[in-house]
Design a binder for these strands. Structure first.
Lengths: 229, 229
DNA sequence: AAGTGGTCTAGACCACCCT
DNA sequence: GGGTGGTCTAGACCACTTT
């Protein structure tokens, strides 16, 4: 791990314990504290600043930002975008199941009758705040033993490392919904907080759809960023 | 304008004339060429690299990137997606205004003090059902007489036909919100119906942002389709 | 005047790729 | 070994705010 990443990680944790408006140590102080140069501290601050977690005011200081509605997110992958935002990504597995595919699942994944699927429900955190519920569905045949893996990180990474399957997100459907009782409880939000529901499919290079995920993002903390990265 | 921005701008233009796979000058060469230090060149390269326009390979060099699939993710335009759904698209103009740009508008459109903007609010229908409210903002200087045009169809088409300006959607931010009283009334929905808010910017080929639109879609009837097109 | 965020330098050094 | 991208330094300087 390079130096600025250590600084970033540490700063990220510190900020999480502070309140909006609180002032951070000065750049010089941070540089001395971490035994690192001005430029390296700034590189870490830049990441936090561009993800709107802090605000630098020339001549005044650096402050913890108000948590605005404009947090950042890409359609790429939860884990990578959390990293980019200087937050730690973590997933808590809510449920895992191996079961026969119903009609709907068979259609979505292009499976034959009698095929089995794996379902994985996960609650995803950014710095200990629940931000998203992921419900994934995959063909069991293609990923034997998947449920034995550690799924607290990136699902795509596990698929790549263990099964050498590289997925790309083909198409996503985004809608606005109110959370169910259960989901609201998991995300720790009121029932009236609108959420973003993203239904996405992962396909291999040969176009076969091998993953279907329904994600529910907290609407008050999340914004999807779509476009040229 | 700071130095790295000049370098970035110049590099951006250069890259546009090159082909994928072509090699850029080395960092040292660029530094000498622009009369600037290594770090400053790198800062510009970092921007291009994180937006996937170039790829740096340690020990080899820096190369123009292949346009990737994820880069091309776009939101379909309202008019075209209505067409695809077999519905007729129509827009009712709610308000049009020519007024001085406030700070926020100036920042978004990159305008100087004293510049004027055109705002256009439209209610968009699919088969006589109100589906979306669009609030657009454009620099007045660039589009003289825009308000005299028929705006019941596609705004982008008008801009193209009348001003020969071809816009591409640069980046869109999607969030889930509840509608205001006014917006709920316009869309004929209860206040508790979650909506999709899409903030998008249109830019010309030379990267200038000349349009900013906030769209509010009925969440119960509208789904955004994001995919490789 | 002193202190702050932000830019920039000139160069060292590392990891890596090519002979 | 020589060239490349990438990280980092120690400090200078600028723009700005506060005292």
């Amino acid at each position: 791990m390079v130096k600025y990443e250590s600084v970033l990680k540490d700063l990220s944790v510190s900020i999480a314990t502070m309140r909006p408006g609180d002032q951070l140590p000065t750049e010089r102080q941070l540089a001395a504290q971490y035994g690192v140069s001005n430029m390296t501290v700034r590189r870490a601050l830049d990441v936090l600043s561009s993800s709107k977690r802090i605000v630098g005011i020339r001549g005044r200081g650096t402050f913890v930002a108000q948590p605005t509605v404009t947090k950042q997110m890409t359609l790429a992958s939860f884990t990578s975008s959390m990293l980019e935002a200087g937050m730690t990504a973590r997933a808590q597995v809510l449920a895992m199941e191996l079961k026969p595919a119903d009609d709907k699942a068979r259609e979505m994944l292009g499976l034959d009758e009698g095929a089995q699927i794996i379902t994985i429900d996960r609650l995803r955190f950014g710095d200990d705040t629940p931000l998203c519920i992921d419900r994934s569905m995959l063909p069991a045949e293609r990923f034997p033993g998947l449920l034995g893996n550690d799924l607290s990180g990136s699902l795509y990474e596990v698929l790549y490392r263990r099964y050498n399957v590289e997925l790309s997100r083909a198409e996503s459907r985004v809608s606005a919904v109110l959370p169910s009782h259960e989901d609201a409880q998991l995300l720790r939000i009121p029932l009236t907080t609108p959420c973003l529901r993203v239904i996405s499919q992962g396909s291999t290079i040969d176009e076969a759809v091998v993953e279907n995920t329904v994600s529910l993002y907290r609407g008050d903390l999340y914004e999807l960023l779509i476009g040229r990265n």
